[in-house]
């Protein structure tokens, strides 16, 4: 154990391993945050298409497209999607792209599929009478949605969305498949130097744990804020 610590210390401090780790941490957070932002945008659009009234042709076509989209991104592993994007699609289109950008886009597209379901269930958890009352007053579907239903659905959506963010942060550990140095790869590099992995991998787990705990605290804070505005007195 002592030897393990010493080797880790040398690698981490003397050979500037901490720099790799900090950069990796930044990459991990970057991919997760931007992935979530893209995911929320895509997810919201898909969820709205799903709850739209389907009398006309256009919503039906859009709905079909969304179904295929969600089916693909939920039906295949994230790693496979990363590999396809990085090694198949981009070379085929002749676009040079760095791994981080590809990872952000793929994570965004992938989480969009999951977020759409979160949003849809959040919107549908609002009593149907709310939309009906809005429509009965002569508001359009979209106005009633934006002014009445969506504000009420946010309270239901936020906790699950936080969950999705946590999943996303941990899922980023697969980006080393496309040669991106994230947190996981940085710690593995430290271990690789001496083929001594005990401390690096335990540290790696600890860093992820701290990240997730921070996010959990953040979500809880936001939830409490929402509840405060809900105190109906």
């Amino acid at each position: 154990m002592k030897r393990s610590w010493n080797l880790f210390y040398t690698q981490f401090i003397t050979y500037n391993g901490y720099k790799t780790v900090l950069n990796g941490l930044l990459t991990t957070v970057e991919i997760a945050v931007f992935g979530l932002i893209i995911g929320i945008l895509i997810g919201t659009l898909i969820a709205l298409v799903k709850v739209m009234p389907k009398y006309k042709l256009l919503p039906r076509i859009l709905n079909r497209i969304c179904e295929v989209y969600v089916g693909f991104f939920r039906g295949t592993p994230m790693v496979v999607q990363l590999l396809i994007a990085y090694y198949v699609l981009l070379p085929a289109m002749g676009i040079p792209a760095d791994g981080v950008t590809v990872a952000v886009v793929v994570f965004g597209l992938n989480s969009g599929a999951y977020v759409s379901e979160i949003m849809r269930s959040g919107i549908q958890s609002v009593d149907a009478g709310q939309l009906e009352a809005g429509r009965a007053l002569g508001l359009t579907f979209w106005t009633a949605m934006i002014k009445i239903v969506i504000p009420q659905s946010i309270k239901n959506i936020l906790p699950t969305l936080g969950n999705e963010f946590i999943v996303l942060v941990k899922e980023t550990s697969v980006v080393s498949f496309i040669a991106v140095t994230d947190l996981t790869k940085a710690f593995r590099a430290i271990g690789d130097a001496n083929y001594e992995y005990v401390i690096p991998y335990l540290m790696l787990a600890a860093v992820y744990l701290v990240l997730v705990i921070l996010i959990t605290v953040g979500i809880r804070f936001m939830e409490r804020r929402l509840k405060r505005s809900d105190a109906r007195k």
Binding site: D127, G129, Q130, E132, A133, A136, K147, I148, Q152
Partner: peptide
């Protein structure tokens, strides 16, 4: 409506 449906 029966259930009032005021906007909550």
């Amino acid at each position: 409506f029966q259930q009032f449906n005021l906007f909550n």
